[in-house]
Amino acid sequence: METLEPLLAEHPFVRGMNQSQIETIAGCASNARFETGQYLFREGEEANQFYILRKGRIAIEAASPTRDPIVIHTYGDGEILGWSWLVPPYRWRFSGKALELTRVLMLDGKCLRGKCERDHDLGYELLKRFADILASRLDAARLQLIDMYDKGGRR
């Protein structure tokens, strides 16, 4: 069977992990592709994956009854998408839609959660990386809140 380990090992996400940890994660990985407009996941659904974007673009949306979905953020090549699998109640907070043909590595979060419980070293390595991702998301969201181009704009 073709293993995804070499593909995963190239990604900065696993930089600093040891070989067995990378292999463990690769064991939970699968390839997937999404056509333009196809949803990877929808708000409220069970969140059992995260994604490493190999090529393509994904929009994170919030639904609204009276208007089109609000795009909050878009992600591109190389980025990690999805942290809801890590935080109870393990449900997607937003929807993720492919804006173009998008290839991803899909990681089985449910499987990884179990492995992390058994191997705290692996769990710590993963949590460190997701703490970084969550911090970046928070930074970005706060900057969006500031609405910095409005009042603070240059002449």
Binding site: A59, V71, I72, H73, T74, G76, D77, G78, E79, S136, D139, A140, L143, Q144
Partner: peptide, 10 residues
């Protein structure tokens, strides 16, 4: 969509 700083890592 997203603040310009979030483009830097990619």
């Amino acid at each position: 969509v997203g603040v310009v700083t979030s483009l830097i890592p990619r």
